[in-house]
Simulated scan of single mutants.
Amino acid sequence: MKYISYQEWIEHGGQVYEVQAKPSGIHTQPFKTFLDEFNWMINTHSKVFLFRFDLRFADDNVCLDNSKPMRILFRRLVQRLGRHYKTKDIAYTWSREQEKAKKQHYHCILMMDGNRIRLAHKLCEKIREIWLQISGGSPYWSEEYHFHRSDLNTQSEAIRHCSYIFKARGKGYKPQYAKDYGHSNLRKKAK
């Protein structure tokens, strides 16, 4: 069972993070996995680029019984971005949402070395192209952040904004083999 917190602050790794927990609560374990990836990026790169976007399917009635589209998307995206920006350090997190009467969709977070990427234009083109091939659907852009590892205010703002995708509402209405969350594993690669 996933633990849900209704607190506006979550402690992890000796730090306290402000989150958007109201009204449905926040799944703490996947949020902490995201924080581990976030902190790995900050500890590895002096600047970090964080981009949040949403994905929808062309057909409103799609309800997949697995997470294959997300595996394909991020495998292709990491390969293409790695070649284009000449980096292997690309972190990501995604969440699947579907409420009883609404269509399935995904919220995504992508993080890269901020010294390699300045603008999201090329990144958006690649995401749009890959998602169209996979689903026929469209991405929706949410927010982008560029920050230095010493810029704690922007980091806090980005973390609070991203905490939205870990909200409890909309999770759990899924087939058995579909996942609610997925993450890269850069933090494990370093160990």
Rank of each mutant, 00 (worst) to 15 (best):
I117N: 05
L119R: 14
E97R: 07
K103C: 06
I42S: 07
R76S: 12
R52C: 09
F49G: 06
K88H: 10
N39S: 14
R116N: 09
M112E: 06
I117D: 02
Y92V: 00
D59M: 05
E99D: 14
A120T: 08
R96K: 11
T87I: 09
I72N: 07
L119W: 12
N39Q: 15
F34I: 03
M112I: 08
C108D: 09
H107M: 07
W40C: 08
E97M: 11
Q104E: 13
P69N: 15
V78L: 08
R96G: 08
N61C: 14
K86Q: 13
I90V: 06
R75F: 04
K47R: 14
P69E: 11
F49K: 12
E99Y: 02
W131N: 01
L64H: 06
F51W: 04
K47Y: 11
Q133G: 07
L50D: 03
A120G: 04
K100T: 15
A101F: 08
C124Y: 07
F38L: 07
R71A: 10
L119P: 00
L110P: 05
K88G: 11
Q79S: 12
T33N: 15
S67R: 06
L119K: 15
N39I: 04
H121P: 00
K103H: 12
R83H: 12
K32M: 13
Q79N: 14
F49S: 09
F57Y: 15
E125M: 04
F34R: 02
W131T: 02
D36S: 15
A91P: 03
C108E: 10
Q98F: 10
I109P: 00
K126S: 11
G114S: 14
L119E: 13
K86S: 10
N39F: 05
K102I: 01
K88W: 04
K68T: 13
E37R: 04
I117G: 03
S46L: 02
M111N: 01
Y106A: 01
R71N: 10
D36C: 09
L73D: 01
Q104A: 01
Q98N: 15
V78N: 09
I117V: 14
N43C: 10
K86W: 01
H45V: 06
N43I: 09
A101I: 08
T33C: 11
R128L: 09
E99R: 15
T87F: 07
D65W: 08
V62N: 00
A91V: 07
L55W: 03
I117E: 03
V78M: 14
K122E: 14
V48E: 03
R118V: 09
C124A: 12
M70C: 01
W94T: 12
R96W: 04
W131D: 01
L81K: 05
W40P: 00
Q104N: 00
H105K: 12
Y106M: 02
L77A: 02
E97P: 04
A91N: 13
M111S: 02
Y85T: 13
F34Q: 03
I127R: 01
M112A: 13
K103E: 09
L64E: 10
A120K: 14
